[in-house]
Design a protein around this nucleic acid. Structure first.
Length: 1125
RNA sequence: AGUCCCGUAGCUCAGGUGGUUAGAGCGCUACACUGAUAAUGUAGAGGUCCGCAGUUCAAGUCUGCGCGGGACUACCA
């Protein structure tokens, strides 16, 4: 491994103070730095000790059973950069890594590896062996994660991470749960969950979102007629006898469990006089007005004469209409009276916002046991539920006609189906039709979720679950959310805020195996209950139980010491074997569910420190809680961001984090989501090995704001490498080259003692940069910080400062000016290295150390102080003007095809205001030098030399003239030269808007610019105009020629391999014209090419080679070059 | 379906509190430079600022309604 590319021999044996490299190789430089960090434990050293204020950071635990992707690099680059910045600022920033180790993905992975399904657990494989396999599997990719962490330069403490399956971690989770429990925020309740009767298990939404679970099916649907109780009235007017509510369902099997009808409060409903299409009996129905045309033919409106018609069409007539809300509370007769709900009201019309008129009748049949919306709405209205289907998907005994039958045809095997089998949906439809309670029966195709394992349809089914009563905390959660600094803010107020507004209780239950068991024990009758909050509490309870004879022995054996964490496993199946004793002496069994893994990760602020069993003061005195900053992908909004928030609010009545960045996705370069399936996933390892972590990080952070989606394109990284790192490297290489040649050497940067104007300028710009970059970091805006640094380096430092200062670095002796140039450049590079260190930790460190000759790491340094150099904004403005003027002159030269080496006589700048002139005067030499023009003349006496143009200042005139502004604009634009002159001399001018309408315009309200200088080459940029004299006389031509000559000799010197400082003597043979030109400029030429003399005669030395130099305009010169000793 | 983000040059992105010439880099074309050189610079071409309507003297910018892309959450009676 090359540590330093061998220094290029330039100056014999002189030692190189500043390392030089053959080329910029970020990946190689990174390896050296990496190695050094490792050896010197730089990360550990960088964590400040003692009295340093702490900046608390939480690492969101990645799941270690999957490979890291490029998107992890983005969120980790954000985290790392902020933490490094704060560290440089003097904060103590601890970063404890963590692993999320529980949950379904791990289980699935293990099942795949072992070739088993959930049904095998407890049969062909014990829970113990299964969980052991999970424990082993989950850390499968930790090696890759460590590698990625190192490779990308993410500083996080992986030696002492928190791991969610460790006993100490689990103990804190139990403790937290108990805190909620003691506050009365944990309860057991019913909820409607996706359930697979075929597999006998509840499904998570995660499982339901597997590909291919939603399939097209054809179901028998029907519009049922619900007979309203007679004698009721709506809006004070009574309803007729035999009035029915119409409700559509795609699941007729839920009709026996119907307990309510839903209407939309703001939907318009109508009372329709009509017939039953099957029985032809006269009746009244209620449905949404918007759905009329779906059930009634316009041609049959009031067609009572066709009442006896045999067709299914029916005459109809709208009698009256009302809002849904007016229907609320109407009672109806139970449609299929097999059973009555045990508690709550039933058979009423209630209103709910979820009701639409997109399909159906605008009136919804509600079976609270079989639909989440139904359940929620029913609960809000105190409506009871009927669950007339068992867990295997069969009707219960109460449903006499269909008792024991599967509600979905798909649950029957082929051999179970009798000949001519009709599904219960069909038979229910027929039954209702015969009873005159069906309005329309038809087949309907729609998508329906299926169990991903059995391929059978899923039911929504009420299941027992344990909940956190987050709804009770809602107000406080909303209040606390206002304290959080969200980046971007819209995620906090929008996605997160609205999520909180619509908060549901948090369902903690998971019927699985690999996770933290719910620490709640209950007696068989459910009347006695105990929540365990620590290992010692558990051991005591076990002892009591053994003492009471409930258990024969302690399943954990002889362990008495609650500190013996290595021997105690709180996972299943061990805790399942624990049976406790209740105060009344009953046996209590553990509730079999596991805790949602989101609760694990949300507990990490406390569990990572084993609070409150250890580190009590650390948490309570604010050194480790709440976090000052966290960052994760926006997909964590309702995940980790939420669970942290709830748990912190519940435990500490505090926010969990003060600032949070939620970053967007990393898409492929076409904007497609990356996936292994499409093969467009970017390999972070390969990418960073190729381009280095710095360029990759820089690209990801500066290309788009972190919360925008990033279209990841390798070409973008390459561009960053070339454009930013390449330029920065070149700038350093330039500095190092000349500093080494000159033996200029300072181990720490110093401000120049005799700064030239250019030095003052760049130092002023640097001062501004420091302020702006610091502000950006403080606002967690890494994108702005990076872009600011990049612009400074490429534009101000390299393209202007270095380019214009080059000559200063290669003048012969060490003058005060040269000294200043070195100091300034050294100073700037050093500051840049520190400013960029958080974002590009490797190269910044390389640069910093190279500048300071073996100094310690930049990450152990301190943030650049502001105020060290003076800010000179008028000089910055002047330079800006010089750059614009330069651009204009170059543009003119281009048009006239006059090369820059050809000197020109004069440039005119008409100045309309004195400030512009003052500014430009500061930078005249620099400007003239840059454009190779001899003289600058200001045109202040406008006279007849200039064509002027007046433009209105809209900001000033707009408010004054309002609607007349257009007219004013026209008038001002078309002012004559003399009018403009009058305006300039008198300071005001009367203009005529319309006939007779005169208005006075003052000079401050318009902008006067020179548009043209007749007879000159003119270019204009806003308020700046330059006019160029392109006439060439003999003297100018001669100088142009001399410059060509210098240029060619310089090339020759280089071709001949002469040392930069080698002095020479030149013999020239050329035409008279050339000879004259050279003689005229002899001093200049000699100085430029380090020639002692220039012999214009062919005093040829036969031994010396003759070179022919091609000058402009086909002129030539033959020269001999003699090195001098 | 709800919520949020995004839509500006061929590509990737900038464009405080509305103000009349809409910018940068890459790419493209031409040129220059050749002692920063497997670099660099300059100039040029390139835009219905997604659409429509509104507010305003004035809209890329503010409001509303759409369209397109993306994400999250929920659901489909």
């Amino acid at each position: 491994m090359v540590i330093f590319a061998s220094p290029i021999a330039k100056h014999g044996v002189m030692s190189k103070a500043y390392p030089e490299y053959k080329e910029l190789n970020l990946a190689e430089r990174q390896v050296e730095i990496q190695q050094d960090w490792k050896e010197k434990k730089t990360f550990v050293q960088s964590i400040r000790k003692g009295d340093s204020p702490s900046f608390t950071f939480f690492e969101g635990p990645p799941s270690a059973n999957g490979m890291p992707g490029i998107h992890h690099v983005l969120s980790r680059a954000i985290k790392d950069s902020i933490c490094r910045y704060k560290s440089l600022q003097g904060f103590r920033v601890e970063r404890k890594a963590g692993w999320d180790t529980h949950g379904l993905p791990v289980e699935l992975q293990v099942e795949k590896e072992l070739g088993i399904t959930k049904e095998d657990i407890g049969k062909s494989i014990s829970i113990e062996a299964y969980n052991a396999a999970c424990r082993k599997s989950v850390m499968k990719f930790t090696g890759s994660w460590q590698e990625l962490t190192e490779l990308m330069g993410y500083w996080v403490d992986m030696d002492d991470p928190y791991v969610t399956y460790q006993t100490k971690y689990m103990e804190t989770v139990w403790w937290i749960l108990k805190q909620f429990y003691d506050q009365g925020l944990i309860y057991k309740g019913y909820t409607i969950q996706p359930f697979s009767p075929a597999a006998g298990t509840g499904l998570s939404s995660h499982e339901l979102n597997q590909p291919g679970t939603y399939k097209m099916v054809s179901d028998t649907t029907l519009v049922a007629q619900f007979l309203l109780e007679p004698g009721q009235s709506v809006a004070g007017e009574s309803l007729p006898e035999r009035t029915f509510g119409l409700a559509w369902t795609t699941t007729p099997w839920t009709l026996p469990s119907n307990t309510a009808l839903g209407v939309g409060p703001n939907i318009d409903y109508v009372l329709v006089k009509t017939l039953n299409p099957y029985t032809r009996e006269a009746q009244y129905v209620i449905l949404a007005e918007a759905r009329l045309q779906a059930y009634f033919d316009a041609e049959w409106n009031k067609a009572w004469e066709k009442a006896e018609d045999k067709s299914r069409k029916v005459p109809w007539e709208v009698l009256r209409s009302f809002k849904g809300i007016e229907l609320q509370g109407l009672r109806y007769q139970q449609l299929m009276p097999y059973a009555q709900p045990e508690e709550g009201k039933a058979f009423q019309v209630i209103s709910g916002d979820f009701v639409t008129t997109e399909d159906g009748t605008g009136m919804v049949h509600l079976a609270p046991s079989f639909g989440a919306d139904d359940f929620k709405t029913a609960k809000e209205h105190g409506i009871g539920a009927l669950t007339l289907v068992d867990r295997r998907g069969r009707f219960t005994q109460e449903v006499s006609d269909f008792a024991g039958e599967y509600v979905k045809e798909a649950y029957l095997n082929v051999e179970e189906k009798p000949e001519g089998y009709e599904s219960v949906d069909v038979r229910i439809a027929v039954k209702l039709k015969q009873e005159g309670k069906a309005f329309k029966i038809e087949k309907y195709e729609h998508t329906y979720p299926h169990c991903w394992r059995t391929d059978k349809p899923v039911l929504y089914y009420p299941l027992d679950s344990w909940f956190v009563r987050t709804t009770a905390m809602k107000e406080r959660l909303l209040e606390l959310n206002k304290e959080i600094n969200w980046r971007p803010p819209s995620t906090g107020t929008g996605r997160f805020g609205q999520w909180l507004e619509n908060l549901q209780d948090w369902n903690l239950s998971r019927s699985r195996y690999w996770g933290i068991p719910l620490p709640i024990w209950r007696s068989k009758d459910g009347k006695e209950e105990r929540c365990i909050g620590s290992v010692s509490e558990l051991l005591e309870a076990i002892e009591a139980s053994v003492g009471a004879g409930i258990m024969h022995k302690n399943p954990y054996g002889d362990i008495k010491d609650s500190q013996d964490y290595a021997s105690i496993d709180l996972h299943r199946p061990f805790v399942d074997e624990v049976v406790l004793v209740s105060p009344s002496g009953q046996a209590m069994y553990r509730e079999p569910d596991l805790i949602d893994v989101w609760f694990d990760s949300g507990s990490m602020p406390f569990a990572q420190w084993h609070y409150p069993f250890e580190n009590k003061e650390k948490i309570e005195q604010g050194a480790a809680f709440p976090a000052d900053f966290i960052a994760e992908g926006v997909d964590q909004t309702r995940g980790w961001f939420f669970t942290l928030h709830v748990i912190a609010a519940g435990i500490m009545d505090s926010v969990a984090y003060k600032s949070v960045i939620s970053n967007g996705l990393v898409l492929d370069k076409h904007g497609q989501k990356m996936s292994k399936r499409l093969g467009n996933a970017v390999d972070p390892f390969r990418t960073m090995q190729k381009f280095g972590a710095d360029a990759t990080r820089w690209y990801m952070l500066t290309n788009a704001a972190p919360w925008d989606n990033l279209k990841f394109d390798e070409q973008g990284i390459e561009e960053v490498r070339r454009r930013f790192f390449g330029t920065l490297y070149n700038t350093y290489a330039f500095f190092a080259l000349y500093a080494n040649v000159d033996g200029w050497c300072k181990s720490s940067p110093e401000l120049p003692k005799e700064p030239a104007q250019l030095d003052v300028w760049i130092l002023s710009r640097l001062e501004g940069l420091k302020q702006e970059v610091t502000q950006a970091y403080e606002a967690f805006d890494l994108t702005a910080a990076g872009r600011l640094i990049q612009d400074f380096v490429t534009e101000s430092l390299s393209n202007w400062y270095v380019r214009l200062s080059r000559k200063r670095f290669w003048v012969g002796s060490m003058t005060g000016d040269k000294e200043a140039a070195f100091s300034t450049l050294h100073w700037c590079l050093d500051t840049v290295a520190r400013l960029m260190a958080p974002l590009a930790p490797f190269y910044a460190d390389r640069l910093y150390r190279d500048l300071r000759q073996g100094s310690t790491s930049v990450h152990l340094s301190h943030w650049p102080q502001t105020g060290l150099a003076k800010r000179d904004e008028s000089l910055e403005d002047a330079m800006d003007l010089a750059q614009r003027a330069t651009s204009l002159v170059l543009s003119l030269r281009k048009k006239q095809r006059i090369r820059v080496r050809q000197p020109l006589r004069k440039v005119l700048v008409p100045v309309m205001d004195s400030r512009q002139k003052e500014l430009l005067e500061k930078v005249i030499p620099l400007f003239l030098n840059e454009v190779n023009v001899r003289q600058l003349e200001f045109l202040t006496d406008i006279g007849e030399l200039l064509v002027l143009k007046a433009k209105p200042d809209f900001k000033k005139l707009g408010p004054r003239f309002g609607a007349d502004m257009k007219l004013v604009n026209q008038r001002v634009q078309s002012l004559s030269q003399s009018q403009i002159q009058e305006l300039r001399t008198k300071g005001a001018l009367n203009i005529e808007l319309d006939e007779g309408r005169m208005e006075s315009i003052s000079l401050e309200e318009v902008e006067v610019v020179s548009e043209d200088v007749p007879g000159w080459q003119v270019a204009v940029d806003g308020d700046l105009t330059v006019a160029l004299d392109i006439a060439l006389d003999e003297e100018l031509k001669a100088e142009g020629l001399a410059r060509d000559f210098v240029n060619r000799v310089q090339n020759l010197r280089k071709d001949l391999g002469l040392e930069v400082g080698q002095r020479i003597c030149i013999n020239v043979q050329a035409t008279q014209q050339v000879q004259d030109a050279l003689r005229l400029n002899k001093a200049y030429i000699c100085a430029e090419v380090l020639a002692a003399d220039l012999h214009d005669y062919a005093s040829e030395n036969p031994s010396s080679k003759v070179y022919t130099l091609e000058l402009e305009n086909e002129l030539k010169a033959n020269v001999q070059i003699e090195p001098l000793l």
